[in-house]
Write a protein that binds this DNA or RNA. Structure first.
Lengths: 357, 357
DNA sequence: CGATCTTCTTCATACGTATTAAAGAGGTTC
DNA sequence: GAACCTCTTTAATACGTATGAAGAAGATCG
C-alpha cells in the first residue's frame, strides 16, 4: 500500500503479455490499422489493459500529433464571471452541449490566469496544444496571441468576428450588420426619419459592424446622412447629458440607437438624460439597443433590442472546429448567425409633433 | 500558405546558433542549473527564441514530468443543468477558481453522456484517467463506478459525503449533522417543544446525516422522542395533505423540519397544506428547511434554512485532490465544512396557544 | 520445392523537453 | 609537462504513444 502512484503504460501491458508495445498501441488506438491484429491477441491486450487499469496518456498522444478527443475553451476573460454570468454562460452551454454530442470532452484553460489578464502564451508556453482544437472567446483579446496561434496553424474558432490583418481566421459571429440594418428598417417602418447613433469609444470589430449596418439601413431607406447625429467618439457615451438629449429632441430626432458598453453605462446614461429632460421613452423618443447588454436586466425597462443567438453560436463553433480538424491546414471559414429582434417597450411610432419630411 | 508551417522548437534555435538542444533547454527552463550557462550564450538563445516566436510546448514538458496538470470534473448529472443551474454552478465556480490558482487546467467530462445517465466507464474505458485526478459530483451516482475507481486507486474527491461499504474514500461534505442539530437547537431556543420531521423517501447519505442531527438536537435539548412525529418514509412527502397538517397542529406540533426533494415538491406541498388548513407560516407553525433546495427561489417566501457553502466546498475539493496526488496510494481524507443558517421568515416563536409542557 | 502472397507482429523512429553524467577547453599548480 | 580545477557545453537518455517499414511465420500456387 506504500507504492507511489504510477499509471500503467502500454509497455506494462506489453511486458505482461510478452508482446511488443507496438502491438498494444495498435489494439488500443483501435484505428483501421488495428484490423490486422489477431483476434486472440487483441482480446488478451484489452483484458490486460482492463486488469491494469490502463488509460491512454493524452499528453503522449498529443505530443505524437494524435487526437485525444479533447476540445479546449479559452476565454480572454474569466470563464465564469460572477457579475456577467448570464453573458458568457449561454456560449459555454452551447459549446458544452455540442462537444458532448460529438463525443468529445471539454478542456477549460483556467491556468493561464494572471490576475484578470489571460494570455494564451503565458510565460512563453502554449497550453492550448493539449487539445485537438480550441474555441476562443472574449472581448479583451491579445492580438499577438492570435497571430502566434495562426503562425502555429493551431486549429481554433473564435466566437465573435475577429480580424487579424494579413491573416485568415475562423469564427462564428452574430450578423450585426444585418441586425442593425433591420433595426433601422423597423424604425423607419414605424415612421422615424431622424436618428441619433450613440457610438462606443473603442474600436472593435462588432462596433464597426453595427455602424456599417446602421449606414446600410439608412441608405436602403433613402435617408440622407445629415438627418443623423452620430455621437462623437471622443466623448464617453456614458456622459450623455440632459442638454445633449434636449438638443436631439430639438433637432427633430425621434429615435436613438445605443451601442452598449461592458457595464451598460451608456444605456443608463441615456435613460437618465431622458428623464432629466422630461422626455419619456418611447412616447417622446424611441430607443433601440444594439445587442444584448450584459446587465440589461438590472433596469426595470424591457428594452427593444436584438438578441444574440449565443447558445447556437457555441454549438456552431464546435461544429466548425471539428470540421477544421479534418480539413487541410489554412482552410478557414466564417459563419454568421442571425440575431433575433426582441420587441421590448422602448420603441414606438414617433410623436406626431415631430418634424416630418 | 500551403506550407504546413511548423512551430519553432528548441532544436530550431539550437541549429540556428550552432549549439546543442540541451543548452537551449537549460536557458529556457531557467532553473538553477541554468546558472552555469555563459552569459553570452544565454543572451543569444533568448534572442533567437524571441525572433523565432518560440514557445515552450507544455505537452512535451508534462510528458517528461509524468503529470498532466489536468484536473477532471465528472458529474453524474449534466454539468450545466438549465433548470438547476444555481445548484451546481457554485460548486463548479469553486472548483474552477481553485484549479486556476494552483495552475492546473480543468477537464469537463461531457462525453460520458448517454441520455441522462452518465457513466464513468463508458465502453469499459475510464476516461477520467485523462486527468491527474478528478472531482466527482452528483446525486444519482453509480456505486459500481465508484468501487471500480477505488480498485484502480485513481485519485478522486467526491463533493458530498459518500459511503462505499468496505472502502475508504475522500470527500468534502457539508456538516449536515451539525447544521440540523443547530436548527433544532435554535427552534428549541425560540420555545418550540414538539416537532414534525418530514423525511424524504429514499436512502441517501445526506438524508441519514440530517436525521441523525435531528435526533442529536432533540437529545441535547432533553426532548423525548414521543413528542415528535416523523413522517413515515413509505409515503411520498409531496403527498402531505391538509388533513395531516391539521393532525400535526392538533397534536401540539409547532415546528416542522422539511427535507427537500430534487424538485422541491415536499416544500411546496407543506406550503399548500398549511394554506388549506388555514394556518399561516410562521405564526401558527414554523417551518425549517433542511438545506438549500435548488428551486427554492421560485416561491415568494424566504424560507428559514441552512445554506451549503458550495463554492468553498468546490475549492476544498480541489485542495484535497492535489494533496492526494502527492500522497501515497490509499490515503483518504474526509473534510466537513460548516453550513450557514439563513434566518428567513418561516420561523418564529411558537403560538402561545400551543400546548406547553 | 521455391516463389509469392497473407496474416500477424515487431523494429525503429519521431514527437519536444529535461536532466545527468561526461566531455572538452582553458587555466593553474607543482 | 603531467595532474588537477573550473567553466561551459554536449551526448545520451527518458517520458508514452503512433506508425511506416520490415520481418517472420504460414498458406497457396505454379
Amino acid at each position: 500500500m506504500t507504492t507511489p502512484r504510477r499509471r500503467a503504460t502500454q509497455v506494462d501491458i506489453a511486458r505482461r503479455l510478452g508482446v511488443s508495445q507496438a502491438t498494444v498501441s495498435l489494439v488500443i488506438s483501435g484505428g483501421p490499422a488495428s484490423a490486422n491484429v489477431a483476434e486472440q491477441t487483441r482480446r488478451a491486450v484489452l483484458e490486460a489493459a482492463a486488469e491494469l487499469g490502463y488509460a491512454v496518456n493524452p499528453v503522449a498522444r498529443s505530443l505524437k500529433g494524435g487526437r485525444n478527443r479533447l476540445l479546449g475553451v479559452f476565454t480572454f476573460e474569466p470563464v465564469f464571471p460572477v457579475d456577467q454570468r448570464d453573458f458568457y454562460f449561454p456560449f459555454l452551454l452551447g459549446v458544452e452541449g455540442a462537444t458532448a454530442e460529438y463525443g468529445y470532452d471539454l478542456l477549460l484553460f483556467s491556468s493561464a490566469t494572471a490576475g484578470d489578464d489571460r494570455r494564451i502564451y503565458a510565460g512563453g508556453v502554449n497550453r492550448l496544444k493539449l487539445a485537438d482544437g480550441c474555441v476562443l472567446l472574449g472581448r479583451r483579446l491579445h492580438h499577438d496571441d492570435l497571430t502566434a496561434l495562426l503562425r502555429e496553424d493551431f486549429p481554433f474558432v473564435f466566437i465573435g468576428r475577429r480580424e487579424v490583418p494579413g491573416h485568415q481566421l475562423s469564427y462564428v459571429a452574430a450578423d450585426y450588420v444585418g441586425a442593425t440594418r433591420a433595426a433601422v428598417q423597423s424604425l423607419v417602418r414605424l415612421g422615424h426619419r431622424r436618428f441619433a447613433y450613440l457610438k462606443a469609444t473603442d474600436d472593435k470589430e462588432w462596433l464597426r459592424d453595427r455602424e456599417a449596418g446602421f449606414w446600410a439601413g439608412l441608405a436602403a431607406a433613402g435617408i440622407p446622412g445629415d438627418d443623423v447625429v452620430v455621437h462623437p467618439p471622443d466623448e464617453d457615451p456614458a456622459d450623455i447629458t440632459r442638454a445633449r438629449f434636449e438638443d436631439w429632441l430639438a433637432a427633430g430626432i425621434t429615435a436613438v440607437l445605443v451601442e452598449h458598453s461592458e457595464e451598460d453605462s451608456a444605456i443608463l446614461a441615456v435613460e437618465r438624460a431622458a428623464a432629466e429632460a422630461g422626455a419619456s421613452i418611447p412616447q417622446d423618443c424611441s430607443v433601440f439597443l444594439l445587442g444584448d447588454p450584459p446587465l440589461v436586466h438590472a433596469t426595470a425597462r424591457d428594452w427593444t433590442r436584438f438578441s444574440i443567438p449565443r447558445e447556437q453560436m457555441g454549438r456552431e463553433a464546435v461544429r466548425l472546429l471539428l470540421e477544421l480538424l479534418d480539413a487541410e491546414v489554412g482552410q478557414h471559414r466564417q459563419i454568421y448567425l442571425d440575431c433575433i429582434q426582441v420587441p421590448g417597450d422602448s420603441v414606438s411610432t414617433p410623436p406626431s409633433t415631430g418634424v416630418t419630411r
